[in-house]
Amino acid sequence: MTSRYLFNRIGQALLVLWAAFTVSFVLLQAMPGDAILIKFQNPDLGLTPQQIAEIRAAYAADSPLWLQYVQTIGNFLSGNFGYSVQAGVPVSASLAAHLPVTLKLAAIGFLTAAILAVAIAFLSSLAPFAWLRSAIQSVPSLFISIPTFWLGIMLIQIFSFRLKLVPVINPGPWQEFILPVATLAVPISAPLAQVLVRNIDAVLTQPFITVARAKGATQGRVLWRHVAKNALLPTLTIAGVLFGELIAGAVVTETVFGLNGIGGLTERAVGTQDVAVLQAIVVLSAAAFVAINLIVDLLYPVLDPRLRTRSGATA
């Protein structure tokens, strides 16, 4: 990996990020709808047109578009994401307040999903009968077909109302995360399990597996000692897709369970046309997506020596 490749790759990532910012600006800020009018034209507030004009000036809502664009880029670069019109607080403060819940949910949910996916993939290749194998392998496609919001509601219905295992009112700090984590883990585990199953099948056809079998290794030992490492690595390539699933899952899960995280904030921002909040969330997720893909691209040759030698040979 030359420093020139590194430089190119980072430059490309920044370009995509800039373009994503522009797309979000065009979609959200250059549009005719107006969050300021929605909130302040309410007759109950009793504001005069002059006062509304002052508020508009304070939000710089009427300056020319190109000026708004340049200003917004400058603000975003310095970490200022503007003001939430509905809440009346800086967007960055709002994001910081809502982030911990989402981070906790996402971290535990992702871990659960990974365990679930590995279990599905390995059980399917250990299954002694063909019908059992195909039954386990069809679990991911079932998981993909279940609406996440419906899954959450069904879990509440079954575990909170029927079996009364998880309290609905005043749950403990960890209890309130059990069902959301289960809900979030299902849509994330599905693509992960599919990639894992495919990888395991591919690795099992490799000559070194035949050698290991010929030396007398059992199926379990072959899987753990020889297949696991080789099959887990390629899952890194779908990290970006999983991140998208995680965001969508967080919005829906937090809405269903009334958790006050970034997902819930997103849902309310759309409902109240709070453009600044949604734009910050869109741009930050695009940044996270670009960063994840960049890291995976740069890390992959480090983790897989075969790629390193190939790039060394061509360079």
Partner: peptide, 9 residues
């Protein structure tokens, strides 16, 4: 660029 923004967002 379209792919870099999560679909739901």
């Amino acid at each position: 660029v379209l792919l870099s923004i999560p679909p739901l967002l």
